[in-house]
Nucleic acid binder design. Structure first.
Lengths: 233, 233
DNA sequence: TGTAACCTGTGGTCAGACCACATGTCACCG
DNA sequence: CGGTGACATGTGGTCTGACCACAGGTTACA
């Protein structure tokens, strides 16, 4: 057995504490210095492990003293997923085309679930669409609300894994979406079309037409990327 | 603007270098001490950032000297995805039920793609099945090969994002799959059924019957979890 | 020519120090 | 008695310097 690295000792200890119920969301981790002494490693090794946990979205750290200070278990997967996918796309571990394809699969499944489920809560989705249609938006503002709309559908489906993965995929290709928007012939025309498509997706969901909703979502996503990639010629 | 944390400076610098093409897979990162001096931060902060990159599967580090030493861009998303999902399940950020549901969605999409694509390369999948059927296996051995089979299907689909996500989902619930197997009334009976289902999935793919393949996969996955969760009573 | 000793550069780890900050405490003053 | 301001405490954030283990190259020697 090759010697485990010191930071892995810390990571394993925290994971074991989580699995055994000694740590739960909302709990404080011991102070870094205590953790180091307990595990027999240096404080810097503890900090490397905590940094990983923080980026992965498991803990939140705060300086100072009192109940809100220290490292607290939060289990927010969105940020970690985003960082992972964004960096993997940057390092060419993930192809942008694969990210888009995966979005199609997940979002197709989401709208199917919503359409076949009874009375999904789409209030926040509707609210976002209304905000998008209220006044002319810059491309960045529009894309931010577009992301929020797609994310709200994922949240409505109630699957936290899908929601977090979606958030990651979206943020991984956010730069490409923005760059693509800049090269479009007519942004007002495209954004108007996208808003119509949003309404169409929502209508199909509310009507319980799963196949229509899936098709509309497919057209919505792949259409945008097909359009923005024309500029590559 | 609040001061960025020192390790984030390093992370951002590496990400920018990747996006701008100054770093590519196979390249070496500068030595930690050089990186620290260049970015104006301490070496410990550099190390925290590198640890994150390592866990996320972006780099591989090695001690010593020569071409194989140092931090090298590798972009292997599987390990990072596994760590992220495993820890999120441990910290109750992800519900096991949602992980299984997401597996159903992704693996259903995978077999559909394979069945509708022309001449997918399933040689390694077949090889794994043959190995499973060769001799009696312990539960751990069987589950490892089972995971390899499902992963090989994902790889055959050619989508790296789906493959890595699948690997993560699988490893996140590996402990539950193993614990469930231990509580089954008859492991030989269950494993025999699982092997038959594998053959059925493969046959449906090769026959081009997408719906049948998807249904078979659905039955395969949800059936196992339904069976193993009986013991919760 | 081969080989053994040595040198160099790298990551891995630790110890200690200092800072900024949020909170709690306590003495003092009205 | 009540407020309020100064101070003590404990936390994460960061840096510096040191030492080790290790892999590879280099050099000197047989």
């Amino acid at each position: 057995m090759t010697a485990p690295r010191a930071w892995q000792v810390v990571l394993d200890a925290v994971e074991r504490d989580l699995l055994d119920g000694r740590l739960s969301p909302g709990d404080h981790l011991p102070p870094e210095r205590t953790l180091a002494a307990d595990l027999g490693v240096g404080r810097s090794s503890v900090r490397e492990a905590l940094r990983v946990l923080e980026v992965l979205g498991l803990i939140r750290t705060a300086v100072g003293s009192g109940p809100s200070a220290g490292a607290i278990i939060v289990a927010r997967p969105g940020g970690g997923m985003s960082a992972l996918m964004r960096l993997q796309v940057a390092a060419q571990g993930f192809a942008v085309a694969d990210v888009v394809k995966t979005r199609l699969v997940l979002e197709g499944s989401i709208v199917t679930d919503l359409a076949t489920g009874d009375s999904p809560d789409l209030a926040s989705s509707v609210q976002i669409l209304t905000a998008m249609e209220g006044q002319p938006l810059t491309e960045a503002e529009f894309l931010a609300l577009d992301a929020a709309f797609h994310l709200s559908l994922a949240e409505a489906s109630g699957n936290q894994v899908v929601t977090a993965t979606m958030a990651g995929l979206r943020s991984a290709i956010e730069g490409y979406a923005r760059a693509g928007a800049a090269g479009l012939p007519s942004w007002p025309a495209t954004s108007a079309r996208l808003m119509l498509e949003h309404r169409g997706i929502l209508a199909a969901i509310l009507a319980g037409e799963a196949d229509a909703a899936r098709l509309a979502m497919h057209t919505h996503i792949s259409g945008y990327y097909a359009e923005t990639h024309l500029r590559d010629h």
